[in-house]
Write a protein that binds this DNA or RNA. Sequence first.
DNA 1: AACAACATGTAAGCAGTTACATGATTTA
DNA 2: TAAATCATGTAACTGCTTACATGTTGTT
Lengths: 189, 189
Amino acid sequence: MALRHAVLAALLDGEHSGYQLAKAFDVGMANFWHALPQQLYAELAKLEREGLLAGREVVQESRPNKRLFSVTDAGLAELHRFAAAPSKPSSIRDDLMVKVAAADSVDAAALIEQLEERAGIAAAKIELFEQLLRKMRGDLDEAEFLARGARIGPYLTCLRGRRFERENLDWCNEAVSVLRAREGSDAQL
Amino acid sequence: MALRHAVLAALLDGEHSGYQLAKAFDVGMANFWHALPQQLYAELAKLEREGLLAGREVVQESRPNKRLFSVTDAGLAELHRFAAAPSKPSSIRDDLMVKVAAADSVDAAALIEQLEERAGIAAAKIELFEQLLRKMRGDLDEAEFLARGARIGPYLTCLRGRRFERENLDWCNEAVSVLRAREGSDAQL
DNA sequence: AACAACATGTAAGCAGTTACATGATTTA
DNA sequence: TAAATCATGTAACTGCTTACATGTTGTT
């Protein structure tokens, strides 16, 4: 049960609505934790009931009303506790990798197509991360920001996301060229 | 529901028992799909009921008896279908990254400790992948194996795993040195 | 006129985790 | 003699996904 902590961490840079959080969990946050809007609304309600978040209603005119949430002292304490506790190793789940693992028994063309699609997604994400990183840095250059910038946490996770997607892109391209080369000359040992 | 496909893929290189699979899902397979032994035993039983796997009892003397499973034609057909179907993007879940995202509000020392531990784990995994890759290659050099080796699927996913862990290691080290540097001079903007 | 963005949820079902349960043999 | 390896499961719980449900405003 750690979606709760991901939500608390996401709310550290100010109050957000469920809708705003859902978008955050679709970009920067999504590198290490993914969640659908329904899940977020449910989790926010739960965290509020438990007193780890405080919600306030904001009445809007040309928009539906919304509820903004912020982390309470109890919420901060819970984050502290969580950060100090040992965690289990990360878990990854990727259908495409399962398909590649079965590459020898499966249609190569379909695999190549999906690897190329994935490479495109990775490239787009890299671009997104670059933007996010620039935005977080503001006027400072990277060394300066790493040394003295505010909110280093999200910056570091973004750096991890960029590294991950670069590897993803490179590997997809490598896998595609290997599979293509074997398609032509299918003399397997 | 794709553990089933991961199991089918894992059984492509011959029959295995639940126990053997559990070990495989703890090393090579774990890069893209993680599963506990209980889950595997349950899934194997289910796949056998559905006719995608065939199990046979092997009586042993100095060991408990075991059941070895292999993929049936129906299982292969299901893998084909799965490989050709579109899949949703990979999902990652990593507690440690959630903690790093909250780095500005939590205890830096505890974070550094966990990042170093993770770096160690990553280094060990890299070594493990190197071994696995050498073992799969056998006498061939890498270019040769990529071009003509048997069972390229597991080799490619292993290459992905090694890339991932290298990035992990580098990033953990980077994050540690950033956090250390900030610990000393805590003049945040 | 159609679609994207804003905004929030409920209900049912399925997948994954944790705890429990057992017991022989080989290695340190 | 203690621990690791071999070997297989059940039961209860929790968390995640899919499907459903609604309605306005701004953009193309």
